[in-house]
């Protein structure tokens, strides 16, 4: 690239390309969605199985994988940030940090108070996070996934608690893991 002068249209095209490239540089994060998809699916399915076999006292144990996922995400994004960050990556990173911290506090501190409302609230938070990520990254698939998780969260209020964990597993599989795999293939 040299320092030649440009026509106005070339200038606009150049600005658009550089800004789009900057946005796309953050899009290669399908891998983190895959990880969370696996963790959410396993945690939900694990809890469902434990409840099915009447292991109520330890039914929340599978969710201990969530802090592990949080640590892996922090390491991943810290390394990524060393290669440069932009407004979009900062925004998405902060949204998910807030979502994760709130889920951990709700799940491990307020679970008893929230009772049957815990799952819908967690799904709503994940849904809003996915929706915001999809909007920031201009990724319609994530946008649609976020909306779907949001709807699943609201539906949970009408579904028996025994099936809530199964809904979490389904949300993780269909709307986090699969979009993650597709994102990863697209990069």
């Amino acid at each position: 690239m040299d320092s030649k002068s440009l026509s106005p249209q070339e200038s606009l095209d150049l600005i658009s390309k550089v800004i789009t490239d900057a946005r796309n540089s953050f899009k290669d994060n399908g891998i983190i969605y895959i990880m969370w998809g696996i963790l959410i699916t396993l945690a939900g399915a694990g809890q469902f199985l434990l409840l099915h076999f009447e292991q109520h006292s330890i039914s929340y144990f599978p969710y201990f994988v969530m802090p592990v996922g949080g640590i892996i995400s922090i390491v991943y994004y810290t390394k990524k940030k060393r290669r440069g960050s932009n407004i979009i990556s900062t925004l998405v990173g902060r949204i998910w940090t807030a979502v994760l911290i709130n889920i951990l506090i709700l799940g491990f501190v307020f679970a008893t108070q929230l009772g049957n409302s815990l799952t819908p609230i967690i799904l709503l938070l994940i849904g809003i996070g996915t929706l915001a990520s999809g909007t920031a990254l201009k990724e319609n698939m994530l946008l649609l996934s976020g909306l779907s998780i949001n709807v699943m969260g609201l539906l949970c209020f009408f579904i028996d608690y025994a099936y809530h964990s199964l809904i979490i597993a389904a949300a993780g599989f269909f709307f986090t893991l699969i979009p993650g795999i597709i994102l990863n293939k697209k990069k």
């Binding site: 690239m1 200038s11 900057a22 960050s85 900062t90």
Partner: peptide, 12 residues
């Protein structure tokens, strides 16, 4: 222009 455009969308 490329440099400035990039810095506009990147914090650093």
């Amino acid at each position: 222009l490329s440099v400035i455009s990039y810095l506009i969308s990147n914090t650093e």
